[in-house]
Simulated scan of single mutants.
Amino acid sequence: MDIILKNVKKKDFPVLKSLAKSLGFEIIEEKEKPYNPEFVKEILDAEQSIKDGKGVKIDLEDLWK
């Protein structure tokens, strides 16, 4: 069985960790990975180019041709 704890305060984590260890549980910490900064810049640049009118409009009928 897996148990996932979310929004654990930093001050409470050592207590939970020691309790889990004393009960023989396996502890796996997963930290959130932020988006790749290059990817974020690419998306923001694309949104800005659309706002500037540099995008290409394709009719839905022509999309599958």
Rank of each mutant, 00 (worst) to 15 (best):
M1Y: 07
M1R: 09
M1G: 07
D2I: 07
D2N: 13
D2E: 12
D2C: 11
D2A: 11
D2R: 12
I3F: 14
I3R: 12
I3E: 05
I3C: 12
I3A: 13
I4S: 08
L5W: 06
L5V: 03
L5H: 02
K6N: 06
K6P: 04
K6I: 03
N7R: 11
N7W: 10
V8T: 02
K9L: 00
K10A: 03
K10N: 05
K10F: 05
K11R: 05
D12R: 10
F13V: 00
F13N: 00
F13W: 10
P14L: 07
P14T: 01
P14H: 05
P14E: 02
V15T: 09
L16S: 06
L16G: 09
L16K: 06
K17N: 01
K17M: 00
S18R: 08
L19N: 01
L19V: 05
L19Y: 08
L19Q: 07
K21G: 04
K21H: 04
K21M: 06
S22K: 14
S22P: 04
S22M: 08
L23S: 02
L23Q: 04
G24R: 03
G24V: 07
G24T: 08
G24I: 09
G24P: 14
F25N: 08
F25S: 06
F25D: 00
F25C: 10
F25L: 10
E26V: 02
I27T: 00
I27P: 05
I28E: 00
E29L: 10
K31T: 01
K31P: 04
E32Q: 07
E32H: 08
E32G: 11
E32L: 07
K33N: 09
K33E: 07
K33H: 11
P34H: 08
P34I: 09
Y35R: 14
Y35C: 14
N36S: 14
P37F: 15
P37A: 15
P37R: 15
E38L: 14
E38P: 15
E38A: 15
E38N: 15
K41N: 02
K41L: 11
K41S: 07
E42H: 12
E42A: 15
I43Q: 00
I43W: 06
I43G: 04
L44R: 05
L44W: 04
D45C: 09
D45Q: 10
A46K: 11
A46E: 09
A46I: 06
A46S: 08
E47P: 11
Q48L: 08
S49K: 13
I50E: 04
K51E: 03
K51N: 10
K51G: 03
K51M: 07
D52E: 13
D52W: 14
D52F: 14
G53N: 11
K54R: 08
K54N: 11
G55F: 10
G55T: 03
G55L: 05
G55S: 10
V56E: 06
V56P: 04
K57A: 08
I58W: 07
I58Q: 02
D59F: 12
D59G: 13
D59A: 13
D59Q: 09
L60K: 12
L60I: 13
L60W: 14
E61C: 13
E61P: 13
D62Y: 14
D62A: 15
D62R: 14
D62K: 14
L63A: 11
L63E: 01
W64E: 11
W64S: 13
W64C: 12
K65G: 10
K65F: 09
